[in-house]
Design a protein around this nucleic acid. Structure first.
Lengths: 136, 136
DNA sequence: ATACGCCTTAAACCATGGTTTAAGTCAACA
DNA sequence: TGTTGACTTAAACCATGGTTTAAGGCGTAT
């Protein structure tokens, strides 16, 4: 089974090594193996798990909550219902956040439309002036 | 023309008074009027403007960038093209962020599906046990 | 006139999520 | 054997976006 060094994982997932160390320290990456020299080595499974952590982070789950999730994963099958409820709840939060952003985007689109119209009209006005200029 | 106190604006937009003061201090709310006693009073226009600021904040535009936007608004029509470019660029960023979240949501949905299936199977297994129990 | 509520400020404080630094260990190649 | 390069740690540092505190000013109802 192939193993990856921290720099390889950093490159593959495009996250800083310091972040990976930080996550491990926070308990988000349990059971990371070390070689004789104390260096971390990651299996494909562990990289996939880190991928999930990144998904949760990208959807703004607080680290404290991700930690609870990870603790439940470590605890085993008996926590699956708790994890299910957590993920359902998180999904709800994420959908609400996306809605909020899409709402804001409407307001931003109104601005874009206004500014575009203004810019367009200015441009036409300049073209008119140019024509008048040439006929002068 | 009706004016609103800071507590009224806070209630209407559902943001803390402290945040409104903080935004004003950061230069995000220029030209807020004061009464003789030094108390802020907001016109409908100013509340609408604050609404835009909230949109930008809700789409994670950094305060420093919002500040630049506000400065350009104050500067006047000559900055409309700059504002247009800023808003177009911001929209691009927001769409990218939403995509990232939706991507993550797929991974979360896989977890939900797995956990649901497991929970469902456990439940069925318990029902089977119950039936066996009754027949015993 | 005094007390209450709403407002003001500056400055201190806070949470979150990392990043950077400094000092050191080890493996491998020249 | 010694010099790189990749790794290690703990601790300090940082940016962002606020919130809280403390001390005080005014206006109006009692």
């Amino acid at each position: 089974m192939k193993y990856y060094s921290i720099s390889e994982v950093s490159d593959r997932l495009d996250i800083p090594e310091s972040t990976i160390r930080y996550y491990e320290k926070k308990g988000l990456l349990p059971q990371i193996e070390r070689d004789e020299a104390g260096r971390r080595f990651f299996s494909e499974n562990q990289i996939a798990f880190l991928g999930i952590i990144i998904y949760l982070k990208n959807t703004h789950m607080p680290i404290s909550v991700i930690k609870q999730y990870v603790d439940w994963v470590v605890e085993g099958e008996s926590t699956i219902e708790l994890r299910l409820e957590m993920m359902k709840n998180h999904k709800k939060n994420v959908l609400a956040e996306i809605s909020l952003m899409q709402e804001a985007l409407k307001g931003i689109d109104v601005k874009i439309a206004r500014y575009t119209k203004y810019t367009q009209e200015r441009k036409e006005a300049r073209e008119d002036e140019f024509i008048l200029e040439k006929r002068k």
